[in-house]
């Protein structure tokens, strides 16, 4: 693992060197992404690069991580960006607490910082005495959209399970809370809630076993679509078509499943545009616009068959 980090840091360094070599008077925006192995962030990155080309009035330096929890390389990236003297840093933090201190340093250096995707921890921000707006979707609200769709379909007393993302990840937590909000509102019965680490095969295995333990499950809330696919496959193997599944992210692979009813709904948070929108906001501030405040919510939308 250490090797990975060293490699990532080296890659970051190289990217930065390349960046300064061709710096001109255009503002420079440093974009710090999470794991590019995740297609959600991969798409977001592609969106940001397209955006740079389209606007043409700024220089984008983008850095991705090796995996979802690799916050050390994110910290290194922030420090490197400070050294490089970028105008703005747009960051999707891998850890909502660990990133606060390095970002404070960046702000002290006069860099405009925009926090998107996952909000920095409020307590940590207070402790470091900084004010920093958050640009991003409401994961909790989005999960509740999907959960509500399920609740409406099942009605009060419907028996459901939750397939969670990585324990400890903020978006996983938020989505679980959103699902739990729906459970409370629609008076559903939550039978079990387990992690499948965002992964299809594990979700398939974990859900098969949950189904064995609770054959009376009526609905499943999966914290992302990859896991929802695993759940759908488990249902097919078990020959059950009476169980309703909702997911999150709206990845292309679930399109057919929603169309033919194997999944009830998913949530689109327009990830492709999220980084680009954040960059727009950052450039506004760089050009002398007002500081961002509070939570700048980005759009989310429930996706169903009709």
């Amino acid at each position: 693992m250490k090797l990975l980090k060293i490699a990532a840091a080296a890659a970051t360094g190289l990217a930065l060197l390349a960046g300064t070599a061709q710096a001109d008077d255009k503002p420079v925006v440093g974009l710090i992404m999470k794991s590019l192995a995740n297609e959600f962030f991969q798409n977001m990155m592609a969106g940001a690069q397209a955006h740079e080309e389209k606007r043409g009035d700024y220089k984008l330096l983008a850095v991705g991580m090796q995996n979802e929890t690799d916050f050390e390389s994110q910290i290194n990236a922030v420090e490197n960006f400070i050294t490089q003297g970028v105008d703005a840093i747009v960051v999707a933090p891998a850890d909502s607490r660990a990133m606060v201190r390095p970002l404070k340093k960046a702000m002290a250096a006069g860099i405009v910082v925009v926090n998107f995707d996952v909000a920095l921890d409020a307590d940590a921000k207070k402790q470091q005495n900084i004010e920093l707006a958050f640009v991003g979707p409401d994961n909790r609200g989005g999960a509740k959209l999907a959960g509500d769709a399920l609740g409406k379909k099942l009605g009060a007393g419907g028996k459901v399970v939750i397939i969670e993302g990585n324990p400890g990840a903020d978006n996983a937590n938020e989505r679980r809370l959103g699902f739990e909000d729906s459970v409370a509102e629609f008076e559903l019965e939550l039978l079990d809630s387990r992690t499948a680490h965002w992964e299809t095969e594990e979700a398939n295995t974990v859900f098969s076993n949950m189904l064995t333990a609770h054959p009376d499950i009526q609905g499943v809330m999966a914290a992302n679509d990859s896991m929802a696919i695993g759940v759908v496959k488990a249902l097919e193997s078990a020959g059950r078509d009476d169980i309703v599944v909702v997911g999150f992210d709206n990845i292309p692979a679930v399109g057919p499943m929603i169309a033919d009813g194997r999944m009830l709904a998913t949530v689109d948070q327009f990830g492709t545009d999220m980084a680009a929108n954040s960059i727009d906001l950052a450039l506004e501030v760089v050009k002398g616009g007002p500081q961002l405040e509070g939570w700048v919510k980005t759009p989310i939308e429930l996706v169903t068959a009709n």
């Binding site: 990975l4 991969q42 990845i251 292309p252």
Partner: peptide, 23 residues
């Protein structure tokens, strides 16, 4: 094989463009 672990993972992401392949 630790090296190959990284090479193969990177190759998988590269080839698939980090997208889930389906249908």
């Amino acid at each position: 094989t630790l090296g190959m672990l990284n090479i193969a993972r990177g190759a998988a992401l590269q080839v698939s463009d980090a997208q889930t392949i389906y249908s």
